[in-house]
Amino acid sequence: MKRSPTFLITVMCFGFAFFYIPILSMIVYSFNASRLATVWGGFSTKWYVSLVSNDAVVNALFLSLKIALVSATFATILGTMAGITLARFTKFRGRTLFSGLVVAPLIMPEVITGISMLVFFILMADWVGWPGQRGFTTITLAHITFSMVFVTTIIQARMIQSDRAIEEAAMDLGSRPWQVMFDITLPVISPAILSGWLLAFTISLDDVVISSFVTGPGSTTLPLLIWSKVKLGVTPDINALATLMVLTVGIGVFAAGMIMSRTERRRQLDAQMAFRSDD
C-alpha cells in the first residue's frame, strides 16, 4: 500500500486495547488475595477453590449446559429445516409470513420476547394446566425458539452458495427425496450445521434476559446466578469464574480455527491432486 496507514494502525491498537484491557484486568484480579475486588492484595488462587466448591455455581453450570445442549440440538434441527426450505422451496403457501417469522426474533428486543413467552406460559397453565411449573422445560423452549432463527440464517446463506446441480443429478439418477437430503444436501452444508449448532449453544449459554422471565423457582442458570451476584457489586469469585469462561472459550475458538484451517488445507490439497490426475 502506498498510503501510510499510521492513523488506521493507531486506531486499531487503541481498539484492540479497548477490547482486551477489561478482560485482562479481570483475569489479573481473579488472582487477587484481597476480598476488596479492586485493590491488589497479593497473589492467591483461593477464589478458584471457593468457586469449584460452591454448589450453587456448579449446579447452575450443569443446568445451563443441559439447557444449551438440548436447545442447541433442537434449534439446529428446526433451523436447518427452515433454512433448506427458504433456500430451495421458491413457492409455497405462506412463504412471505414464514420468511418474516425467521427474521422477526432476530430484531425483537429480548425484553419483549421474554415477556410474551412468560405471558404465554402463564395463560397456557391457566387454560390447559401446562406448564405446571416453569424451569428447565420453559427455558429450553424459549431458547430453541430464539436461537433456531440464527441457525436458519447461517444455513440459508450456505444453501444459496451451494451448487444445486449435484442435487439435480442425484434426482436424475433416481434418488428418493430423503436420499438426496441425507446423501447430498446435508453433507454439503455440514460445516454450516456445525457452526449453527455452536452459535445456538453459545446463545443459549449466554442468555440472561429471556431466561430471567421464563425461569421458575429452583431453576437458576449460570448467567442468572452471575446476574444476581453482580447486581450487588464486583466480587473476586466472579472474576475467577470469568477467567475460566474466557479461557475455555478462547481455547475452544483457537482449536476450532486450527481444525478448520487444517481441513481447508487438506481439501485444497485433495482438489489439486484431483486436477493433477485429470491431466
Binding site: P22, I23, M26, Y29, T38, D206, P223, I238, M245
Partner: peptide, 20 residues
C-alpha cells in the same frame, strides 16, 4: 480477536467494566 469477545459471556463483558 474481534470475534473472540463476542463468544465470551456478554454479562461478564459488562461486569469487566464494572470492575474498571
Amino acid at each position: 480477536l474481534v470475534i473472540l469477545p463476542f463468544w465470551t459471556s456478554f454479562l461478564l463483558r459488562v461486569y469487566a467494566w464494572m470492575g474498571l
